Computed example of a mutant assay.
Amino acid sequence: MSKHINKIIIAAIGILMVVCIIAIFMMMNYKTPDHQIATIKLDGEVIREIDLSKVSDPETFSVENKHGGTNTIHVEHGKIRFLEASCPDQLCVQQGYISNSLLPAVCLPNGVVIEIEAANEELLLDAIVE
């Protein structure tokens, strides 16, 4: 019985490794669209949109929620980040710059989300189409 369980465990580990390798390959070959829009949301409402390809000078601005929580956001050409935050864990600040749509920047305690999307929806292709 134990030989049968060992074979199942080895097969499961092998499948998991293949899935991980495919995911890494897809992420390494991700193509960033030329025109990207950073959407900043506060409690689910869009408060600002910035075309990251048109940012010529770095800009820093603050977002304050209704409970007094504050986030300072820094924008440069092609990238955006949380520079400072009033939240206790500072995970949003530690994330650093984002420059593609793979992972949004989120400050859960303050309810602020930064997402990046292609300016033209036709530029967003899934991995199967590419």
Rank of each mutant, 00 (worst) to 15 (best):
L42I: 02
A118H: 00
L91N: 14
C92W: 04
G68S: 05
T32I: 15
G68H: 00
A85H: 08
E76S: 10
D43V: 00
A38P: 06
T39Y: 03
E130K: 14
N71W: 01
A12H: 01
T60Y: 09
Q95D: 07
I13F: 10
V106D: 09
A38M: 02
A119G: 15
H74Q: 14
N29H: 09
L102S: 12
I47R: 03
K31L: 01
S99A: 07
A118E: 02
T72Y: 05
Q94R: 12
G14K: 03
M27G: 12
K7I: 12
I13D: 10
M26R: 14
K41R: 15
S99M: 05
L123Y: 11
M17C: 15
I21V: 15
H67Y: 11
I8N: 09
E45V: 09
T39D: 02
D126M: 08
Q36W: 00
D43S: 10
E76Y: 01
S101K: 03
K66M: 12
I24C: 08
E49F: 01
T72V: 14
K41I: 04
E45Q: 10
Y30R: 04
P58G: 03
N110L: 08
N6Y: 13
V63C: 11
I98W: 00
I15M: 06
I116E: 04
S86K: 07
I10E: 13
S56H: 14
I40W: 09
A11V: 10
K54N: 15
E45R: 13
K79L: 11
S53D: 05
Q36R: 11
G44W: 05
F61L: 07
T60W: 07
C92A: 04
T32R: 13
I15N: 07
S56C: 00
I80G: 06
L83R: 00
N100L: 08
N71M: 08
G69I: 06
V106Y: 09
L42P: 13
D126T: 06
H74W: 10
Q90W: 03
M28H: 08
H77Y: 08
C92V: 07
I21M: 12
I21T: 12
G78T: 02
M28Y: 11
I50L: 06
R48D: 12
G111E: 02
V129C: 03
E115F: 00
E122H: 09
C92Y: 05
I13N: 05
L42W: 03
S86F: 03
E115L: 01
R81E: 14
M28F: 12
G68L: 05
H74Y: 11
I37D: 01
V112Q: 06
F61Q: 11
L83G: 00
I73E: 04
V63A: 09
I15D: 04
G44Y: 01
M28L: 15
G78L: 02
V63N: 11
V93N: 00
R81Q: 11
V75K: 11
E76D: 13
A38W: 02
I50S: 09
N65C: 08
L124M: 12
L103Y: 07
E130S: 04
D34L: 09
V113M: 10
S101Y: 01
H35R: 13
L123G: 13
A11E: 01
N100S: 11
Q90M: 02
V112A: 03
I73P: 06
G69V: 05
K66D: 14
G111V: 01
Q95P: 08
D89S: 09
I50Q: 11
K31D: 06
E49I: 02
I50F: 04
I37A: 09
A11Y: 14
S56E: 15
M1A: 12
P58C: 10
A127E: 11
K31E: 08
